[in-house]
Design a protein around this nucleic acid. Structure first.
Lengths: 148, 148
DNA sequence: CCGTATCCATTCCGATACTG
DNA sequence: CAGTATCGGAATGGATACGG
């Protein structure tokens, strides 16, 4: 994967993919949201090879998605999501929602902790709260918006 | 990437990644949303090798993200997003939003076509419309929710 | 327990040449 | 234009052995 193709691309999508554009990274973040913190936890949960896991964890730390914090118990450290990393929740849940909509079993439901009720499906809303589909929106240069 | 690791995984996130878990596929879908339809359009827009593009397009068609339709002009065909493929809009925009939040330039803004106003940032909402963060939600077995 | 280092097979990617 | 075929180099992945 050559950098020149999309690494220095201006598109934020491409920039995001630079950080989490491979399967293992996404799954590691998923496990991190599930509460996993230790090297071994990720290893067992994902069945990923140690060397690959090492590289991926380093990459995620380098991109500010995870950070290493000293473990309370031992001399080791743990990997926890940074604020930036926690921002990936929407990406993960968007992927999850799409995977569900594609059929197949969905044994889990995302619920509000406060009342246990399912949350509303992820969707875009206009400033007056109308729900918007892909065709109702467009990307325009920032300069154009400011003029309105 | 071995199938046994996450291919037959029950997690919808993993299932989604099976279809669009590589960078090229995501970027192809991005271009499809931007209106690209032809082989050559994707090729030039992304600078991807022909053979890679061929494989990716085939894969996206196989997963029902794209479909081939006969082109109006020539004997060729075009690749257009299916309904399922259009469902990836949220994933793409979640990635975009995250990429923007990570800093860097964001020359484009997502606006409502109807009034040109920026749309609200993507976020989860409870059934009473409270905005929910990652810690306000949890995934619970579907069976548990039905009981409430 | 948490990695690092090494080896090897497989895959991926880009470039090029070629076909209809 | 829209691929297919092929090739070499690079990266990835899994397994294993090793070290702190």
């Amino acid at each position: 994967m050559k950098r020149k193709c999309f690494g220095e691309d201006l598109c934020p999508v491409a920039r995001s993919l630079e950080a989490v554009g491979d399967v293992w990274s996404v799954l590691i973040v998923r496990e991190a949201f599930a509460g996993k913190r230790r090297f071994g936890e990720f290893e067992r949960a994902l069945g990923v090879a140690k060397n690959i896991l090492t590289v991926r964890l380093r990459k995620l730390v380098a991109f500010g998605v995870l950070e290493q914090v000293p473990a309370a118990d031992g001399p080791r450290h743990e990997y926890v999501l940074t604020e930036r990393g926690r921002g990936l929740y929407l990406v993960l849940m968007a992927l999850r929602q799409w995977g569900e909509d594609c059929g197949g079993e969905s044994p889990y439901v995302l619920v509000d902790r406060r009342d246990g009720q399912p949350v509303k499906p992820l969707a875009f809303h206009a400033h007056d709260d109308r729900e918007l589909g892909p065709d109702d929106m467009e990307l325009v240069p920032a300069a154009e918006v400011k003029r309105r």
